[in-house]
Design a binder for these strands. Structure first.
Lengths: 145, 145
DNA sequence: CGTAATCAGGACCTAAACCGTCCTGTTAAC
DNA sequence: GTTAACAGGACGGTTTAGGTCCTGATTACG
């Protein structure tokens, strides 16, 4: 259904929350703030830390801190951090031998332009755009398209 | 993983095939042409027919015919026909009572601009664009973005 | 008029992916 | 030394999509 994973949703919530906190916040603290079970939030934060979107401090009184300002984080980065590279995974996945009927299949690498288009669209939306709940939809669209 | 369903892939293959056939072609015929099991192809074609992307003729010597030229069919239409409306289905799905912590959850309708951006990106790619296997990638991208 | 071919529409089952949890190890403050 | 927190991986339950099949309706052809 072209859906993104729920974890990505949590990631956005966590990042926005971290931005509001303006400092170090622990995983349990964030979990309580956004209303999501702690282990799940921890998992998301680990993934985000792996991509440098948040920086972590270990030990007591440690926690997570926003790696960059919201305006410089785009949606594509978050999705990539959580779900892996953005690709519509039809035949393109490098599945060896999966498509032995390549002579028949006329859809060889044809989704590539679609993938690219989606990627650029997502790269042009920053977390700062999503953070404003007022959401001036029509206006923002023209920036993207 | 932001992936689209495999059925959508089949749909594109079937439509391109129908365009090449330039006339009526049966469901088994298309299945053989694109190398996909017949029942699955039949399912896809029914979905496409429901949205008017292909027109069907029943009875013996019947079959499917392309509803419109490839250039006037965009990717968003196909995805919508197969997978339903394009929406990243986080909280937005109208799930009543699913998000009882709305006061906490700061991700209310925030994915809407993202959905819209993806939708417009997909609407700007036609099947004719996908049909050319040469795929001048960088050029086409600028048309979209 | 009957038979065969084809689409229409739904029900069903299997399989895979995701979500969420837990466990163990490492680091740093008190 | 103890406690609080992140790091990283492994595991099971649930959901969703993919694929198949069956029955009915429609039309060409003999």
């Amino acid at each position: 259904m072209l859906k993104l994973s729920r974890l990505t949703d949590y990631a956005v919530a966590a990042l926005v929350r971290l931005s509001a906190a303006e400092g170090v916040e622990t995983s349990p603290g964030i979990a309580a703030a956004i209303g999501v079970p702690e282990p799940t939030v921890a998992k998301v934060l680990k993934l985000l830390a792996g991509q440098g979107l948040v920086s972590s401090t270990r030990g007591a009184r440690g926690g997570y801190r926003l790696g960059r300002p919201l305006a410089s984080i785009n949606v594509a980065e978050i999705i990539t951090a959580i779900d892996g590279p953005i690709a519509l995974t039809s035949c393109v996945e490098g599945a060896t031998g999966m498509c032995e009927s390549q002579t028949l299949c006329p859809v060889a690498g044809r989704w590539d332009p679609v993938n690219a288009a989606i990627r650029t669209a997502l790269e042009n939306i920053t977390l700062a755009d999503m953070a404003q709940s007022s959401m001036p939809r029509g206006l923002r669209l023209n920036e993207v398209a």
